[in-house]
Design a protein around this nucleic acid. Sequence first.
DNA 1: GCGACAG
DNA 2: ATCTTGTCGC
Length: 293
Amino acid sequence: MGLARPALRPDPSLSRAEMEALQRDIAAAATFEDDHALDPAAVAVDEAASLADGLPPARDGAQERLGAGAGAESADASGSTGDPDAPTVVGVDQAFLTDRGEGRPDAAVSAAVALCGGRVIEYASATTPLSIPYVPGLLAFREGEPILAALDALDADPDLLVCDGSGRIHFREAGLATHVGVLHDVPSVGVAKSLLCGEPDESTSERPAGWRTPVRADDAVTTAEPGTVIGHAFQSRQYPNSRRVNPLYVSPGHRVSAETAVDLVAALCAGYKLPEPTRLADAHAERAKHDAE
DNA sequence: GCGACAG
DNA sequence: ATCTTGTCGC
């Protein structure tokens, strides 16, 4: 298993043609199948963290288990709350520092938040200068290194990565989540708030929470047969009387099937539009950003 | 040449 | 993504 693939790093100094070629290599190295036993039920988060009083403190699973012994409340071992044996899910997201004077972002503040049994066990972040502008389809070359830096700063060992952006829903089936998943050789899923390419089977408007439909490759996806299921549109949240929330676009990053990817994200959502790992990483990146300025 | 496109 | 007030609806 030839891991440690420095040749596949999202080096921003490459030419556009080289970046695209590298993405085809990334896609070829990626696996869009379940080659592990990641059970959506095992990673489920059943209670959303309240951000009203700031981010929840990171808890050590072992200490938590010992501490719980004192109370008489033990129990629901069937639940996911704080189970130290549950898989470690890591959410990654970024915020940007904008240069005073210039109107453009100057550096990326990447955050990684590790959850175990639905609870935060660790926060990490890294600030990295930005080297190239945002180009649709080449996001990983702008945000890849910053994200890898945040993951390097994390002690926890991820069983699943949840990235903010597409995975297989990409022109060359090599979105940000695929880059990061392949480089770490860890299962990963991409969660995007808008659709980069591909075509949903059904209209996505006015859908109730829990609804989903496959997203299939169209002509814009150059590496897959048109019609191939590359992800799903997933309505994670909806208000009772108005149907104004847009769906999420969930796709496999690496070592996960399109079906399992949505099931995992559905299990990681706890009442908000974004899955908890992403929501917490978002808040942590924002906090790190403000602490930096 | 025009369109269309994660963050 | 970021720059921002109020505003409508949970």
